[in-house]
Amino acid sequence: MELTDHQIRLLKIVDSVRWGEADRLGEYEYVLIRRALGERDTVITFELEQAVAAMQARRAAGQLEPSEAPPEGSPERSPWLDTWMRNPLTGEAAPTLSQLLPGNV
């Protein structure tokens, strides 16, 4: 499955939720996510559920410090890279994966 540029931007917003940085998001980002949920974007819905579960697990373990968040563009920060950006048959990264590196999207 190939993600659209818009979905990639939304998934970066979801990363902020995953790492407890939701307070850094503005109203515009909130509206974009709500719109994706309203349109039943399955990719965004699934990843948002995963992000909330990860955030709650870290919070329960007392590990929700923003300084602990991996840097932008690292695979640990964005686990959806492996889920959505790899060919399920070959395991190779999609050609558009390079677009996700810092400064490209």
Rank of each mutant, 00 (worst) to 15 (best):
H6N: 09
Q7V: 09
Q7S: 10
Q7A: 09
I8S: 09
R9W: 06
R9C: 07
R9L: 10
R9S: 13
R9E: 13
K12V: 08
I13H: 09
V14Y: 01
V14E: 01
S16I: 00
S16A: 12
S16E: 12
V17N: 00
R18I: 02
W19K: 01
G20Q: 08
G20Y: 06
E21V: 03
E21Y: 03
D23F: 05
L25W: 02
G26S: 05
G26K: 01
Y28C: 06
Y28W: 12
E29F: 03
E29V: 07
Y30S: 15
L32Y: 04
I33N: 00
I33K: 04
I33S: 01
R34E: 08
R34P: 00
R35D: 14
R35M: 09
L37F: 05
L37D: 04
T42V: 11
T42F: 00
V43M: 06
I44Y: 00
T45I: 15
T45F: 04
T45R: 12
F46N: 05
F46S: 09
E47R: 12
E47L: 11
E47H: 11
L48C: 07
L48Y: 02
L48S: 06
E49P: 01
Q50V: 14
A51N: 08
A51D: 05
V52Q: 15
A53Y: 03
